[in-house]
Design a protein around this nucleic acid. Sequence first.
DNA 1: AAAAAAATTAGAATAATTCTAATATTGACA
DNA 2: TGTCAATATTAGAATTATTCTAATTTTTTT
Lengths: 141, 141
Amino acid sequence: MDNRRPYSGVIDILKQAGLRPTSQRLALARLLFEGADRHITAEMLHAEATAANIRVSVATVYNALHQFRRAGLLREIVVDSQRAYFDTNLARHHHFYREDTGALEDIRGDAVEIAQVPAAPKGTRVQQVDVVIRLAPDDLT
Amino acid sequence: MDNRRPYSGVIDILKQAGLRPTSQRLALARLLFEGADRHITAEMLHAEATAANIRVSVATVYNALHQFRRAGLLREIVVDSQRAYFDTNLARHHHFYREDTGALEDIRGDAVEIAQVPAAPKGTRVQQVDVVIRLAPDDLT
DNA sequence: AAAAAAATTAGAATAATTCTAATATTGACA
DNA sequence: TGTCAATATTAGAATTATTCTAATTTTTTT
């Protein structure tokens, strides 16, 4: 990474997405996009920002997450019918989901092969194919 | 269907699941299990019951749905990170989901072939494999 | 029939998310 | 650089799905 202009990468990402690089968007984008890929909820991101001394409201966190998703910078993962997870990994891939702990783990795209997918019904197009492998603890006493 | 003893099928289903065939469970079970397979939310089921002059509280609808799921009479489908859908179709199958309308449609199990599924991580077992094909309206002007 | 166990209920509580409408920041351009 | 319109942010209220609570009713057992 270019440390002489530490924010430039994220600034460009935002600009190309047509989003003004405001200070909170910038800070959130850095948390999300610098470093390894991650799975995150709005609440987690807000807590991280707060912990990093970034003053940002929950409303803004939600706004930013949705804007980033619309811009294709994030993908939403639906595994829990109560909270939304976002994934910074945009490569084709799938997920293991542990219902008991809420932990999400990536499955490389080429590790799952989907054959014979039926055609989308008339008037629709396939937006995304999600595969979730739900896991339970394997307590064989 | 046996019309001489119209409730008996559903009564047996409940009994075998270890659930007392109370009047509201019975009425809800009839709405769910008599007739074709369906996808339903708690709110929809409550509205249907009310429309059919069955007095039942939302709490009881939620209780019943979860009890039925635990008993293996229903399967939960997670497609929306805000509301829970339940499916009376217990056969292995998957779903088309239209994000704009919320409409769910079954995909026969044999219409999707999943190959090379990776092994479940240590300490876990696979509970279910969910495939959701997300659809968007295909508006080519 | 009485007692015990289980189910149902209304309404309050909770949790995630969205909305509101007021204030602040940004970028364009005079 | 200062002004202004457009956009973003905010606190807190509102909304929505769901769960909880504790009282009442129903069911089963004795």
